[in-house]
Design a protein around this nucleic acid. Structure first.
Lengths: 235, 235
DNA sequence: TTTAAATAATAGTAATACTATTAAAATAAA
DNA sequence: TTTATTTTAATAGTATTACTATTATTTAAA
């Protein structure tokens, strides 16, 4: 138990995942209850979907009370943004780390696409959050973090910085590969979004994709590589 | 009033927008109240966002009661699917109509991208639904129709047929243009989704895109044409 | 040791998403 | 034409949700 917490702090420093302080009332990383909230909210959102997920159900799951969770998060939407921030921070770290030693920007971009489309190979027990579940939650629920009437307010509070940072990171490598490319930002956000909804369609509305049941995740990588590099290599 | 209704029926036949009967308890097209529900729900979802939209508020707006609306729709999610069905049916019709006379599949695809990215030039008063508002609602709320835990059930009830039909229509033209292309379905769904979320980002999280404030909609067309044709033209 | 500050649980509220009951109106049968 | 029947609609009700306020308990400082 204590060991995991320590490991978490190590990862935190290593990962450099900084989560906007305005997202929470009380830092969930600081207490056992807070960490339980994070871990089990991912599990429960995965299980019930964000609409049916409530603080009361979460409280029951972790043996606390509704108001216990309200001490950490103002509402469930902020918790969702917290989770997506964590995800994008973690992804950006993973990408930085694994592309750091690479020189060729083409190989960098291919690595990025792979890391996003085929998640969880390493990071077995890096932290108390199950990254496999987290990825599924982001695919199905992530866009609900910004598809609201308060986007503008939330954006002004910098809540989407981790997402933007990731897109900027990808956008920079795109320009490194092709300095004349006209749409680096749009292509970067398109890569992220396409990975997510093609994943969703593959699992839930498969006739909207071309992937075979067995090799599906690999084929998303194929589609994205084709899409990205044909656009970047166009003379 | 009667005139609009007649026009609507004409459009309905002309458009061939067939909406799944399981989506409603009572056909909203058949009554004045039903048509009011459709028209004003688009307006109210646009104004409040889907989360804050309720049948009670809608009832107040149109001078009816909550249970009055429940006689037409089982819940607000079904109403959202109804609206998205209407949108994709209308889009598919528009596309079929405007590409019918075209021979060159490249020009067809370009027309499709234009029609989706630059909505509402014609269709001033074709029906009682404001297509301009409808487009905005689809951009911000459309994906919530399928991003739920009941996708699978809803899919088995054929609720997403209009979306799939549109993607198949686009996928067929993609194959017409390049019969050897490996990802016609994924590219088709990608076109639809990219148009929508690039539109959303442009208005709400503009740093995720490359479009200038003035010419933005045209530039989405530029980005998509680049993306689609560089992929399809790759040797 | 008393007091204050922080923490947590209990109970409460307005609003939401529906349902069930009852009333009124339209339609059909006798 | 009257009565029965079905349809339509409004009123009232309920469980749940998303919070808030109050009260109790623990911890820490003076």
């Amino acid at each position: 138990m204590y060991f995991n917490v320590e490991i978490y702090w190590l990862m935190e420093i290593l990962l450099g995942i900084k989560i906007n302080e305005k997202l929470y009332l009380r830092n969930p990383e600081d207490t056992v209850l807070g960490r339980k909230i994070l871990k089990h909210s991912v599990e429960l959102i995965y299980k019930l979907g964000f609409e049916s997920f409530t603080f009361k159900k979460l409280a029951e799951k972790i043996g606390s009370t509704e108001s216990g969770i309200y001490r950490y998060f103002e509402n469930k939407h902020r918790l969702l943004i917290y989770i997506t921030s964590w995800y994008f921070g973690w992804l950006a770290y993973k990408i930085s780390f694994q592309t750091n030693n690479l020189k060729n920007p083409k190989i960098k971009l291919q690595k990025i696409i792979k890391l996003m489309a085929l998640p969880i190979k390493d990071d077995k027990q890096t932290s108390y959050i199950d990254e496999g579940l987290l990825h599924s939650v982001i695919v199905a629920e992530g866009s609900k973090a910004y598809l609201t009437k308060q986007v503008d307010k939330d954006n002004k509070l910098q809540f989407f910085k981790p997402y933007k940072d990731l897109c900027n990171l990808i956008g920079d490598i795109i320009l490194e590969y092709n300095p004349k490319y006209k749409y680096p930002k749009s292509l970067a956000s398109t890569i992220v979004e396409v990975v997510h909804f093609q994943n969703f369609f593959m699992h839930n509305l498969s006739s909207l994709t071309d992937y075979s049941k067995n090799n599906n995740k690999v084929e998303i990588v194929g589609f994205l590589n084709n899409l990205v590099f044909s656009s970047l290599d166009k003379k």
